[in-house]
């Protein structure tokens, strides 16, 4: 769906050229230390910062050649939290940017455990609730603007979608993202801080450090104690054999 051919940014904050493909039905996690350029990379993938080197192609067509409104049918972005200036109702905010059916709104609110907040003003919600509202809005844009000829569910870009969620809501959200990816053939890209969350739910991981992708692949390949110690400067406990199929990282006391 989205392919990168040595795409990068030369002006600061810069991103070293990288190649790869985002595939429908797949959940990709972008991880890396603070200030590594994860959000910058995400805004390059969304086309908000046009790539300055190499090329980004969506469905075979260079990203910058897409008309901005058509592009909005194919990819949505949920940026990091910004407080909306006015008191929208949850339902209204979810439908901003598209013209969804009532059934779709109801379905998405239910998916993210927001049904009881449908009529509430978003300014009265907690940070975690508001975060889920914005994620529902992104999904709503893709699903309700999906054109008949589109072969897949489009590209959903999420910047730290779990930053304000408790552990139960984190699990619920990550499972829901997997479900959306499978059910609607969406490609979902999430910038994640929690490596265990990324390791448990993502199909693939890109590890970014100082604007450069230094490792990519399946979680087991990327999240090795050596790499983590190297990149994050964090000291981990020795790996435990009971978590063989997905890596679980614990800090040494």
């Amino acid at each position: 769906m989205l392919t990168l051919h040595q795409a990068g940014l030369t002006t600061t904050p810069a991103i070293s050229p990288l190649s790869g493909t985002l595939r429908p039905g797949e959940l990709l996690a972008i991880v890396g230390p603070n200030g590594a350029g994860k959000s910058t990379l995400l805004s390059m993938l969304s086309g908000y910062r046009p790539c300055e080197k190499g090329q980004l192609r969506l469905d075979g067509k260079p990203l910058h050649e897409w008309p901005i409104t058509e592009l909005a049918n194919r990819r949505a972005l949920v940026a990091q939290q910004e407080l909306p200036g006015f008191d929208w109702q949850t339902e209204e905010l979810v439908s901003l940017g598209s013209n969804p059916s009532k059934a779709l709104i109801a379905e998405l609110l239910d998916d993210l455990d927001l049904t009881h907040l449908a009529k509430r003003s978003v300014l009265s919600l907690s940070g975690g609730e508001r975060q889920r509202v914005m994620i529902a809005r992104g999904a709503c844009q893709l699903l309700s603007r999906r054109t008949p000829k589109a072969r897949d569910g489009g590209l959903l870009l999420l910047d730290e979608p779990t930053s304000a969620l408790d552990i139960g809501q984190q699990q619920r959200l990550m499972r829901q993202l997997r479900a959306w990816a499978a059910q609607h053939m969406m490609a979902i890209v999430g910038v994640l801080h929690d490596l265990n969350l990324a390791g448990t739910y993502a199909d693939r991981i890109w590890l970014i450090h100082k604007g450069e992708r230094i490792a990519h692949g399946r979680p087991q390949q990327v999240l090795t104690p050596e790499t983590i110690a190297d990149v994050y400067g964090a000291e981990l406990q020795p790996p435990n054999s009971s978590t063989a199929n997905s890596p679980f990282l614990a800090l040494a006391p």
Binding site: S46, Y48, I68, L96, S98
Partner: peptide, 17 residues
């Protein structure tokens, strides 16, 4: 203007110039 309330980057991704 409604779209802009999402913040500039998100509004751009939702089709706003």
């Amino acid at each position: 203007l409604d779209l802009l309330q999402l913040g500039e980057a998100t509004a751009h991704a939702a089709g706003l110039d």
